[in-house]
Design a protein around this nucleic acid. Structure first.
Lengths: 342, 342
DNA sequence: CTGAAAGCGCTAACAT
DNA sequence: ATGTTAGCGCTTTCAG
């Protein structure tokens, strides 16, 4: 069934398409009677103008493309919701895709977004979280970004000046570690995170710096990166519990590893936080439903999403934007941290 | 910076746009040399054809619109991931929007999707989960569906023949209740769910039917709908624990209420499952990380998403489809259910 | 194998 | 206040 066009309306209303367009967009005065007639027809046929035809000449689609690594990770829907809220007013819509961290897929989506002439791109995960990113992947993104306003969320690419929005993970780490120190801990470990990802190295560096600044010793054997899963948290905590001398508290790179660590402690018949304080990162929903409720650092995912489109909007207006917009993370103190046993 | 067009390529290659189009779409033989020259230019300028111009005349956009009530609820990202996987091959992309269950917002998005001429719509949540839906909301959706292939996921609209894909919630409920009965429970309660939503009434009806079929008594005071939150589960379980005579097991409408119920039991100093068996519904990630791990019914969210686009694809091909495609839920037995105390 | 030209549905000068 | 017309960037006959 062919959709009705502006021509059909015009013909039946006995006016030109220009007039119909005028009432559609309220872009010039139209006589009351004519307008009424046209509006009636629009109602009658339930006419909705073809956005593509319009975009073709206006050169804007009202669409923002979003690439996330894994929507199944609760962090991203939260960012998305924030972005959506901020985009609401301007009536922007989102083309969303999961890259599953697969660089090929990222490239494909980038192409699709480009073909669809989206007004802007929000890029998360994958290549922008790598400590070392292959050159052609960098170039590709730079190329796209030179044509379409693009903002990288919680990531970046060395030697480029791509616009970024990020929570200050180093500050977040410092917040968490200071909290532990404030509680009286002097022996603190680090668990989780893949070493080739920036989020891990940023946190690890901040971790070391904070300990050092506070005059505490850094014990290399208590630095146990691995991956981001619950399993890996469990594994590394098990390893830690096996040591003759072990920390009284650990900082985990994210909430999943923290939960894994807690499980390991519990299964070893020890108590959190009495025998071991544990702090996570991200504040996923699970964090405050878990028992014990997890002390963690909130990345303000929602705010991150809002900020990303805010920045994107100013880019689309061709105004100047800062290369890096930073968001302050927040420490959420709950039950998994406490003073060490005397 | 104006994007390069097929004309720019054509001019520089000294051929007509038709020829460029031919190599772009491999739609007719082109002499090797010419083709090479053109491909080189395409490379050089990083040319990507404008999808809108193409869609304008092909009358298809390669976009599927998805309306979900709340992406922050882990069920939906899972469905989305399934849909994405299935759509992959055909290269379809998704325009996603959160309606927050707000009917006005649903209407807005429906309009936008229509204007953008998406190839199909996947509709979830909101009005299609209402026992009683206002007529104009029904009509609106029917109208859109008459123009754009639309599938309703886990919901429906009375007196319409909109295409639906859904997990069989009644069967899932029966599965859970039979499991409880098989364990030896004879006194079983029902917790959670808003009464005006179909998911609640479907489950409640199946609950009653199963008890009856198994020859068990239905105690009206043990039927406690409320809402879908953790809080409501807790609240109703508290109420139940206060009764002089109480069930030994409860079926909760979803995992959140089940978790709330468990918390209430734990805080009352009782044990799950020894003092109270609890079964949830949905199998959200939290379900198997919670302590005790939750016995629940999986809706097969991922499969649901795949099926939805599968159905959508056949609709887009103008082939016949069943009005209702049903998916069998699965019982996932974990730790929150067991035999009642003797 | 290649080119010319019509047209997809709409907007925006430019006329009237 | 309204109509005419030229595109927006692409695909697709129809000729050659």
């Amino acid at each position: 069934m062919r959709q009705v066009t502006i021509y059909d309306i015009a013909k039946e209303a006995k006016v030109s398409v220009a007039t119909v367009s005028r009432v559609l967009n309220d872009t010039a005065p139209v006589k009351g009677a004519t307008r009424a007639r046209i509006e009636e027809l629009i109602q009658k046929y339930n006419f909705q103008p073809n956005a593509m035809a319009r975009s073709l000449l206006k050169k804007e689609t009202g669409i923002i493309g979003v690439i996330v690594p894994d929507l199944t990770n609760p962090f991203f829907p939260e960012v998305f919701a924030g972005a959506e809220q901020e985009a609401q007013q301007e009536g922007h819509t989102f083309l969303l895709s999961n890259s599953i961290g697969d660089y090929t897929k990222e490239s494909e989506y980038l192409s699709i977004l480009r073909e669809k002439r989206v007004d802007g791109i929000i890029f998360m995960g994958g290549r922008i979280n790598l400590k070392q990113c292959e050159d052609h992947l960098v170039q590709e993104l730079v190329q796209h970004a030179s044509v379409i306003p693009t903002v990288l969320v919680n990531g970046g690419l060395r030697n480029t000046d791509l616009i970024r929005v990020a929570t200050d993970e180093a500050a977040g780490t410092a917040l968490a570690v200071r909290h532990l120190i404030g509680l009286g801990h002097k022996q603190i470990g680090f668990i989780g995170g893949e070493s080739h990802m920036t989020t891990t190295s940023i946190k690890l560096r901040a971790f070391r710096k904070t300990l050092k600044d506070e005059g505490l010793e850094i014990r290399e054997e208590w630095l146990l990166p691995d991956s981001f899963s619950i399993e890996s948290g469990k594994r590394q905590m098990l390893k830690m519990l096996d040591m003759k001398e072990r920390p009284t508290a650990v900082f985990c790179v994210n909430d999943y590893t923290a939960i894994g660590a807690i499980k390991a402690v519990a299964e070893a018949g020890l108590a959190v936080p009495d025998d071991m304080s544990i702090v996570g990162f991200d504040d996923i929903p699970l964090a405050h439903h878990f028992i014990p409720e997890l002390t963690t650092v909130s990345q303000q995912a929602h705010e991150l999403g809002r900020m990303a489109v805010k920045v994107l909007k100013t880019m689309m207006n061709k105004e100047k934007v800062k290369k890096l917009t930073t968001l302050d993370p927040q420490l959420i103190v709950r039950q998994s941290t406490g003073a060490p046993r005397p």
